[in-house]
């Protein structure tokens, strides 16, 4: 349903998106994960027909977002980051207006259906200005689904909601995602992990990784790094000792008493490490593979990017203006 190929977006000299490619299929909820300013919103705005790409192609339901912008917009439901609400309209009036503008037949009926869908039918005649934050978010979602779109693009849909409201909204999104293609962005990892069939991790305009949450975890574990917590000597001493263990390539010390040990390819050094710690009379508090949570994966991936960026940066500038 969504095909993005080599999508590039430049604002003047700043490159917001650098040749990203990904796909999302029908009945799939795809999570867009990344820190602020990574290019999530830019991508979503391009897909929703808000802005044209500088280069590359993006297709929604087989239609190019630039060439067939109006047709694409008709098929997409979009909830921007700031929920777009006319505060002086009633909930139903607002949804009816949106439905009419999207050319939906029976706009009144559709508005009521959308309200029911988000569980707001009892506030149909209320002014939007009198609604709570959570309710407004739901009205925003109702706006995105009022014309029954094939593709839903939700930019940070749960931001600013209390945990209870978040749960409700997630359930709603999950339900919507059964038949539609949903692309949602978030910087909350647990949300992506919980909600999404697939995750696309993006940082500074580049796609860092994309896969199912499980497979992402697996892939990263193949890197063969271990998390070790030891109580004993000074961190320097411990690191030095651990570094001498056969098969260990490198030891990092992110915090006192915590060590990340990288093994050489294909070697399992867990037994040897435990042995060495015990030999030195230290207490082995924890020994497990590193990067089991998405949080860690994320940090891992984005810090890897840092290294590549440092070497690429000047080159990129040059290309932009050659």
């Amino acid at each position: 349903m969504i095909e993005v190929h080599n999508l590039t977006k430049r604002y003047g000299r700043f490159v917001a998106l650098d040749r990203i490619s990904f796909r999302a299929h029908q009945g799939e909820i795809v999570g867009f994960l990344g820190p602020n300013g990574a290019g999530k919103t830019t991508t979503m705005r391009i897909l929703s027909g808000y802005m044209p790409p500088t280069d590359g192609a993006a297709k929604v339901a087989g239609l190019d977002v630039f060439e067939d912008s109006l047709e694409v917009r008709r098929r997409v439901g979009y909830l921007p980051e700031t929920v777009p609400l006319y505060r002086d309209m009633t909930t139903r009036g607002y949804l009816k207006f949106v439905a009419e503008l999207r050319g939906t037949p029976h706009p009144k009926q559709r508005a009521d259906e959308a309200l029911e869908r988000v569980g707001m039918q009892d506030r149909a005649r209320s002014l939007i200005r009198s609604l709570s934050k959570g309710m407004r978010q739901r009205v925003g979602l109702a706006q995105a689904i009022v014309h029954d779109p094939q593709v839903l693009i939700l930019d940070e849909p749960t931001i600013g909601l209390d945990p209870h409201q978040v749960q409700d909204l997630r359930a709603l999104i999950r339900e919507l995602g059964r038949t539609r293609t949903v692309l949602l962005s978030t910087h909350i990892l647990s949300e992506a992990e919980q909600l999404c069939d697939r995750i696309v991790i993006i940082d500074r305009g580049h796609i860092v990784a994309q896969d199912t949450p499980d497979r992402l975890r697996e892939t990263l574990f193949q890197g063969g790094r271990l998390f070790v917590r030891v109580d004993g000597d000074t961190p320097q001493a411990v690191a030095r000792v651990l570094g001498r263990v056969r098969g260990v390539e490198k030891v990092e010390t992110p915090r006192d008493g915590e060590y990340i040990v990288r093994a050489r390819a294909g070697q399992d050094v867990r037994a040897a490490l435990a042995e060495t710690v015990v030999e030195h009379g230290w207490a082995l508090l924890e020994l497990r593979p590193w990067a089991t949570t998405l949080e860690e994966i994320f940090l891992e991936l984005t810090s890897r990017m840092d290294a590549t960026h440092a070497s690429k940066a000047p080159k990129r500038k040059g290309r932009g203006y050659a």
Partner: peptide
């Protein structure tokens, strides 16, 4: 300011 312009600009209207 309210962000509704973004909505209008993603509506299927010129």
């Amino acid at each position: 300011r309210e962000g509704t312009l973004e909505l209008m600009l993603t509506m299927p209207v010129r």
